[in-house]
Design a protein around this nucleic acid. Sequence first.
DNA 1: GCGGAAATGAGAATCATTGTCAACTCGGAT
DNA 2: ATCCGAGTTGACAATGATTCTCATTTCCGC
Lengths: 136, 136
Amino acid sequence: MSAIGPSTRRPTRQRSAVVESLGAVADFVSAQDLHARMRAGGNAIGLATVYRTLAALAADGVLDVLRTADGEAVYRRCSTHHHHHLVCEVCGRAVEIEVPFLEDWAETVGGEHGFWNVRHTVEVVGTCTNCQTGKP
Amino acid sequence: MSAIGPSTRRPTRQRSAVVESLGAVADFVSAQDLHARMRAGGNAIGLATVYRTLAALAADGVLDVLRTADGEAVYRRCSTHHHHHLVCEVCGRAVEIEVPFLEDWAETVGGEHGFWNVRHTVEVVGTCTNCQTGKP
DNA sequence: GCGGAAATGAGAATCATTGTCAACTCGGAT
DNA sequence: ATCCGAGTTGACAATGATTCTCATTTCCGC
């Protein structure tokens, strides 16, 4: 569960296929969605493997994970530095944002309470410009 | 889904029971959890009703909703002031913390990108003092 | 008190995610 | 190049939260 161990992670056809397919998508995709896309693209891979691989990549910090409003996990390849997202809860559009002071603050407040190895998650959601006007 | 229609909402025994039970819990609770607590407290209510009621209350803006790491929806009565938690990922101990500047910042960054009705979630996790020593 | 609309509840249905386990594949040693 | 063992895969079952169904009950205005 903590598993920060890079220990034994073997490169396989499926693993690189997942990474590659993920690169072909600009936005966040769910495991189900990615699996469907891969299959559609003639890439034979098991659903369980997609889940496992995404989880492993996320654990390695290669992917960003967040949850849609209905609880589905969605993934996206992320850049090397830590950042957060502003997500439209209507259309799902995501904007990458930064919270410079937050990084330090998290460390600090963690330290103050005697916490170690502190990580944080920030999600900001709202309604984007497009979706404000087109309200049903 | 958008459902801002107050339209027809009838006060019932169950509805007020849910609100009351929710008030008895300081932290976030899942629908399952709340249902179990209510039953345990001798409050007969159906699981589906708990789900429906929580969803309705959340739609009315009476409740805060967020998702745990494993996708479970958790609810909390909107308190007057917004705060966050520092959670130990080993023992689950939670410390209440505040991020004053974050509130403003979320508004600001949302506005900059044309987002409306911006809400945010912050989760800070780490390993607390007690659990550091007992590391395998 | 009556009638209809809204709400409830028990259980089935749905759906994402995880577990199981035998078969397979990779990388290093022979 | 071949063999071996550990990591990996995939089909399917299992789990678990959430939603749906529909007959029954409750609330509110008349």
